[in-house]
């Protein structure tokens, strides 16, 4: 069982990585075209897809805990938890 603190840092590193490499800096100046589009655009498309998956995982796990509130606090009026 990972400690909470460790998990928080993993999320922060994950978000920072997603942010940093949304622009493929290592492909700077590359003009290769793959399947009709520049290769850096394909990277960006794949990366944002991965970001959506990580975000979805976050909402299912530590969304409330990292904000310091109890699970289920976000359930609205008249809605079942």
């Amino acid at each position: 069982m990972m400690s909470h603190c460790m998990r928080d840092w993993l999320w922060i590193v994950a978000f920072a990585t997603l942010l940093t490499f949304s622009v493929p800096w290592f492909l700077w100046g590359t003009s290769t075209v793959v399947a009709g589009l520049p290769v850096w655009l394909w990277w960006h498309i794949g990366w944002l897809g991965a970001a959506a998956a990580v975000f979805a995982l976050f909402t299912r796990t530590d969304w409330d805990r990292m904000m310091g509130v109890d699970d289920g606090v976000g359930v609205g009026r008249g809605e079942k938890p």
């Binding site: 498309i45 897809g49 975000f55 909402t59 409330d64 606090v73 359930v75 609205g76 809605e79």
Partner: peptide, 20 residues
């Protein structure tokens, strides 16, 4: 304005896809 946090969560996860 969101009714519940579920709404915020779904929007959050769908955001990158819509943007693309």
């Amino acid at each position: 304005v969101a009714r519940s946090a579920t709404v915020l969560k779904r929007s959050f996860a769908l955001w990158p896809v819509l943007v693309l």
